[in-house]
């Protein structure tokens, strides 16, 4: 197969972004869209630049990042542990795999009002919703990775005398690793999205909270600046996590 150059792809992607910017600029020329609804690019980017260069966003950023990290750690420990326990028995896999997959298809954000009651308006409810949402892809991928390791590998290892520990450490784990890693990547990203979403619904602080209160105060340019900041963060998270995943895969070959 010929390895195609990535330059045309990148140019097209850049072109689409520029086109969006152009439409935005044109639509917000004086006399067109009400600047309260959609301010022109210039003030938005000015605000965005201020967010990047001053420390004003840091307290809220820290709240969101802290919620996110805690949620991801909780989801990955519970998800991986439970996934491992379930994968140990074929019976448990047949019972719990479809059950968890079914629960995963329920929009977990519906639990958020309940979490607000349980854990309050602060970080607790955001951590809870982030954990809930990230838990499912992690547990499901852990089960998929561990329970469906190619039987031929297992037979080969057993024929050479592998004991249970060796089988798990040297065969099951590395065989399952790429699939588990994909679950962790998904969990990591959707935890962030869920927390941001939770914050915009009801919160005391955080990135989502800022955006909502700016909207309520009709500070459109500032609000869009913050949205750009959130988009930038999502981009960075996605890029970093995908990079870590690719590195992890290569490390295991």
């Amino acid at each position: 197969m010929k390895k195609e150059s990535k330059i045309p792809q990148r140019l097209i992607q850049l072109g689409v972004l520029l086109a969006i910017l152009l439409v935005w600029w044109w639509g917000t020329l004086p006399g067109r869209i009400n600047p309260l609804l959609l301010p022109p690019p210039a003030p938005v980017f000015k605000n965005f630049w201020l967010l990047l260069t001053t420390a004003s966003i840091w307290p809220d950023l820290w709240v969101t990042v802290h919620e996110w990290i805690v949620a991801f750690l909780l989801a990955s420990t519970t998800g991986c542990t439970l996934g491992y326990v379930i994968s140990r028995s074929g019976y448990a896999v047949r019972v719990f795999d479809p059950l968890l997959a079914g629960l995963y298809s329920i929009p977990a954000i519906l639990l958020f009002p309940l979490y607000l009651l349980f854990f309050g308006l602060g970080s607790g409810s955001k951590i809870a919703i982030g954990t809930t949402i990230a838990f499912f892809p992690i547990v499901l991928n852990t089960i998929a990775g561990l329970a469906y390791v190619d039987k031929a590998y297992i037979r080969a290892a057993q024929s050479m005398g592998a004991n249970d520990f060796q089988l798990f450490w040297s065969v099951m784990m590395p065989a399952a690793f790429p699939v588990v890693l994909t679950g962790l990547r998904l969990g990591c990203i959707i935890a962030f999205l869920a927390i941001l979403g939770g914050e915009t619904i009801s919160s005391l602080a955080g990135l989502g909270h800022r955006i909502v209160s700016l909207a309520e105060n009709m500070e459109s340019a500032q609000m869009f600046g913050n949205i750009l900041f959130a988009i930038l963060m999502a981009f960075i998270i996605n890029g970093t996590v995908s990079y870590v995943e690719a590195r992890g895969r290569r490390g295991m070959q």
């Binding site: 037979r155 050479m160 590395p174 070959q253």
Partner: peptide, 21 residues
């Protein structure tokens, strides 16, 4: 049961672990 000290196997399918050299 398997007697790894006495019997070795060569399988039809590839059972080399792809993550190891």
């Amino acid at each position: 049961g398997p007697s790894p000290q006495k019997v070795a196997y060569v399988f039809q399918e590839n059972t080399l672990f792809p993550w190891r050299t």
